[in-house]
Design a protein around this nucleic acid. Structure first.
Length: 976
RNA sequence: GCGAGGGUAGCCAAGCCAGGUCAAAGGCGACAGACUCAAGAUCUGUUCCUGCAGAGGUUCGCCGGUUCAAAUCCGGCCCUUCGCACCA
């Protein structure tokens, strides 16, 4: 249970800041939206356009989704504070069957679904309305905008909201597809797709939106090898066509009734389940009879490619539901075959029963075909031996098969008995032999699913041939090349993906872009029976946000949005008057739209989850390259990783996710935004942990209190060293933040602003800092630095500090060179280090000091250091060189051995350090003076008297001669 | 299978690309102390091992290499997570 504890000020006092995060959020959101600071229009400033990949309308989102979304608002707010005119539009992706299946489940009274809706706060009276897919879309559009994005205070331009099922979006997509057609990127060819017999194409994926079971199934391509057997053609389905040279016999299940099917001038033999599946994949198949497996046993057939005559033998392991129900035997490399063959060879009775010549059966020997490192010539024989498998049906065979297949396929080579394929790696040989057999009409292809898949409607899912499937030709070499070259110059985060995307673009192939069936989406403009598929209609859309406000406010109607309209507005093509006349859109509206596109595009950042890396992002890039001119190609991609629950990915089914509004209420929006920004690098998954959230709640609480307390500090005239330090520190923090943000490093911003700066301020106070003006300056910078990530809290504090206007509109603090001082920071580090050293000595010696004496290094030692640094800079620092050099100085030389020892030590020490560190060592400040000014502080901290001496001071108090250990930046210490 | 990422002290998590400031930021937790009637909050210190002078030793998945110097670069291995197309 979280207790909101903003207890630092009395809520009844009108002067204090608001104490409840929900009050603060409501107050400032009202201000922002009333003043419309979220709305972005063209002006003189430099522009910055950022989006997150719009979410699919799949139901309620969870706290994990807010991670990426909030990054976009953080970045947008930072950029606007940097003076950019920032455009951050939002939308939703409703294409597909998410809304349809949700509506169906509601309509069917699915208890889980109703429960889920209730749990997420869906009003009772709305539930019955969610039986219509488009109502579902509109309902969730509202939920996303109001309960998620506005609730989190996003400065998104709501006027530009877009949804893929709105008619204007459809017009845009149709235009996009006409452009793809013009560019020659739409192609048509046959396609084998998973489909429900009743509903048409379905998606097979683990989320199982389309299907009832079988989410992990894959489409498997079998090579159907043709074995001539008299007038019949026996079909053996194999995944390993390269093993033809090792075939020794054919397997037939005597218990199975096979079907004879006419295909062209051949009569094919296969199992009935196979025939039924094949009907969806091949035309002109006709059943002409049946036969039992036993009828084939003993007859011979001719193997493809080798022309070898092999005999049909009985085998119980031939499953009519797998492949064709007929199997060709390669005992050298297939454990199943070897085991079955050996069983038969030992079973004279069986041979007799089937009328086989036992001697002939016994004479069959495996034929070695593949050489695999670490294996003998017959891997199947070997592994069966090793695993002690003796009979068909042994469960260990599955494992054996896996091992042999994996090893052979990836590490093996065809041996010298494989004709023209000898010496080829197995994976290459497989493809070559398959192609050769297909060309010679010795083989065909057959597709099947690796496991049973059932549609939501209860019908089985099959692989169905679609003759006229449309594809987007992402394999197009020209577009691929241009995209790859463009991507090299983009800002892509994480940087690993910048490299990786090159490979993804190479690998990206033709992609089916339309489908039939009951789907939400846009009609394919060239053939209305098709609906454009969900990924293909979400690639160019960022530019649509530049058009959407004009439709949303009624300046343009969807029916006015034809080819010429889009050509003019998006591409600047065509004559304005002509387009205005043809489309019926007002001339000035067209002009403004065109100017908007010119101004806002290209997109600066597209942020999306890691699931987009192999599909959405490459398609997004290639569509821009294919359709828009180069100056409008995207500039940046930001990939974010997930928030996981302990059980794995947060999901509806696995639970672990609480509704977003509930979490916002519980933890406060700003605490959550800070959590997302700070918990880990954006490029790593994090685990949702409520306790961790509570820590961020406490952190925000503490920060507000700190600001309130510090804001009450009195002004003062005197500027102490610690004041100089605080300003130097604040400025170097800002420098670090700004530098990090060049790479959109929000985590660095969060670390500096919410953790390091509070620590600096704490140190300032502990150190006795008390200058209200200096603190006021620090607070001013600090609150502005917090505005991007925790905007509500920042506004509240900004107001409390008596600042005019909104901090959201203020400039982000930049480091002021005049206030920066490396010496001031180093001097303070020096004091801190001294304190640590004294504590360490106390700890080790267990002395409770009555007095602490500190000795700074004498001037001659400083000279040695400076000479060493000079040599270091010239890359000439060596022990003898330094020794020789320092000994030329009479002052140093007078210290004799002590001087040469120091020179040696210093040379050794500095050569081991980095240039940066040496430069820090070289920075001089008056150590003794600085310590004296810190006397009060040190005495207070050490709870005893402290004294400081120059080690060269003849008047010094030095009972144990410790002063001789003093070195520059490292004073000697004596505890009394 | 193909492709990508990750393994850092009790836990989370930076650092690695650009080797030296690294016994390694920060956070959490734990322990001790201050404040308080008390609790919480807050503040201070400690939190790999050893050490009666600010030090030394052993650490960043494992093995080996490069280098004056490796958490960081190179090679191999083990473990692990994720993505893979009509799912967004």
């Amino acid at each position: 249970m979280i207790i909101r504890r903003f207890s630092f000020s009395n809520p009844n006092e009108s002067e204090g800041m608001l104490t409840r995060s929900t009050d603060i959020e409501a107050k400032w959101q009202e201000r922002w939206y009333a003043e419309r600071i979220n709305e972005a229009d063209r002006d003189e400033r430099e522009k910055f356009m950022i989006i997150f990949a719009y979410p699919g309308v799949t139901g309620y989102l969870h706290v994990g989704h807010m991670r990426g979304f909030s990054y976009v608002d953080d970045i947008a707010r930072y950029k606007r504070m940097q003076g950019y005119n920032v455009l951050f539009p939002v939308g939703t992706h409703a294409t597909g069957n998410g809304p349809i299946s949700l509506a169906k489940r509601v309509a069917s009274g699915d208890e889980d679904m109703i429960d889920y809706l209730r749990r997420n706060g869906c009003p009772e009276d709305v539930i019955p309305e969610l039986t219509d897919p488009l109502t579902v879309v509109e309902f969730f559009n509202k939920v996303y905008v109001e309960q998620y994005w506005r609730r989190f205070g996003f400065l998104a331009d709501w006027r530009r909201f877009a949804c893929t099922t709105h008619p204007q979006y459809g017009k845009f997509i149709q235009w996009q597809f006409r452009k793809l057609m013009d560019a020659g990127l739409l192609i048509q060819k046959p396609y084998y797709s998973p489909a429900c017999i009743a509903h048409g194409p379905v998606a097979i994926d683990a989320s199982e939106t389309d299907i009832a079971c079988g989410g992990c199934a894959e489409t498997t391509e079998y090579t159907l090898m043709k074995f001539r057997c008299g007038e019949l053609t026996l079909l053996a389905a194999t995944l390993r066509p390269e093993t033809v040279f090792g075939q020794t016999n054919f397997w037939v299940n005597p218990e199975v009734e096979y079907v004879k099917v006419v295909c062209g001038d051949e009569i094919w033999v296969m199992s009935r389940p196979c025939f039924e599946k094949m009907l969806y994949q091949k035309d002109r198949l006709k059943e002409v009879g049946t036969m039992w497996g036993t009828e084939l046993i003993g007859s011979t057939c001719t193997a493809p490619m080798t022309g070898r005559e092999i005999v049909c033998l009985p085998a119980s392991f031939c499953d009519p539901n797998v492949g064709t129900g007929l199997v060709v035997s390669v005992p050298s490399d297939a454990p199943d075959d070897w085991v079955a063959l050996r069983m038969l060879q030992e079973d004279e009775a069986a041979c007799l029963r089937y009328g086989l010549d036992w001697d002939m059966v016994k004479a069959i020997a495996p034929i070695a075909i593949i050489e695999t490192k670490g294996w003998g010539p017959m891997p199947a024989v070997e592994i069966v031996e090793r695993m002690g498998i003796t009979r068909s049906g042994d469960p260990k065979l599955v494992e054996a098969k896996k091992i042999v297949y994996k090893e052979g396929f990836h590490a093996g080579r065809m041996n010298q008995d494989c004709g023209p394929y000898s010496g080829l790696p197995v994976d290459k040989a497989k493809e070559a032999m398959k192609q050769d057999m297909l060309r010679a009409n010795q083989a065909d292809l057959f597709y099947d699913l690796s496991e049973t898949v059932i549609c939501r409607c209860g019908e089985p899912v099959v692989i169905k041939k679609v003759d006229d499937q449309w594809f987007i030709d992402y394999a197009n070499p020209m577009v691929t090349e241009l995209t790859k070259r463009h991507a090299e110059g983009m800002r892509i985060l994480p940087t690993e993906y910048q490299t990786n995307v090159q490979g993804v673009l190479d690998w990206f192939r033709e992609r089916a872009c339309v489908r039939q069936g009951n789907w939400l989406g846009t009609r394919f403009p060239f053939d209305e029976k098709w609906i454009i598929e969900a990924i293909s209609d979400s690639t160019l859309y960022p530019i649509f946000y530049l058009i959407s406000p004009y439709v949303n406010d009624g300046s343009v109607r969807p029916d006015q949005m034809g080819t010429e309209f889009f050509d003019y507005v998006l591409l600047g093509r065509g004559d304005l008057d002509h387009v205005a006349k043809r489309s019926g859109v007002a001339r000035d509206v067209l002009e403004r739209m065109r100017a908007d596109v010119d101004y806002w595009y290209p997109l600066d950042v597209n942020l999306g989850g890691k699931e987009h890396m192999t599909v959405h992002f490459p398609a997004f890039l290639m569509n821009h390259v294919a359709i828009l001119p180069p100056e409008q190609w995207p500039r940046g991609i930001f990939v974010n990783w997930y928030v996981m629950s302990k059980a794995g990915k947060i999901s509806k089914s696995k639970g672990g996710a609480q509704p977003i509004p509930g979490a916002a209420e519980l933890y406060g929006v700003d605490s959550m935004r800070l959590y997302y920004a700070h918990i880990a690098s954006p490029f790593a998954d994090v685990e949702w942990d409520e306790e961790v959230l509570e820590n961020y709640v406490a952190k925000m609480d503490r920060i507000m209190r700190t600001v309130e307390e510090l804001s009450m500090m009195e002004e003062s005239e005197a500027i102490e060293p610690i004041d100089v330090w605080l300003l130097a520190r604040m400025n170097s923090r800002m420098a670090s933040i700004v530098k990090g943000m060049e790479q959109l490093d929000l985590r660095n911003l969060a670390g500096e602003a919410y953790f390091e700066i509070p620590n600096d301020l704490k140190w300032y106070l502990r150190r006795g800092g008390s200058n209200g003006a200096v603190v006021g300056r620090a607070l001013d910078m600090w609150v502005r630095a917090m505005a991007p990530i925790t905007p509500h809290t920042a506004e509240e504090m900004w107001e409390h500090l008596g600042k005019d206007g909104l901090v959201a509109n203020a400039r982000f603090p930049c480091a002021d060179a005049a206030e920066m001082s490396q010496a001031a920071e180093l001097a303070e580090d020096y004091v801190r280090k001294l304190l640590e050293d004294v504590n360490e000595i106390v700890k080790v010696t267990k002395i409770a000091p009555k007095r602490v004496l500190v000795y700074t290094a004498p001037e001659w030692k400083e000279k040695v250091l400076q000479k060493a640094v000079a040599l270091f800079r010239d890359n000439e620092l060596k022990v003898p060189t330094l020794t020789k050099l320092v000994m030329q100085d009479e002052d140093i030389k007078s210290h004799g051995k002590e001087a040469s020892d120091l020179a040696r030590k210093m040379a050794e020490d500095l050569t081991r350090r980095s240039a940066e560190e040496v430069e820090r060592m070289a920075v001089r400040f008056d150590e003794l003076e600085y310590l004296r000014q810190a006397e009060g502080f040190l005495a207070r901290e050490l709870q005893c008297e402290v004294g400081f001496f120059d080690a060269a001071d003849p008047e010094k108090v030095d009972p144990q001669g410790k002063s001789r250990f003093a070195q520059p930046r490292r004073p000697a210490i004596y505890l009394e």
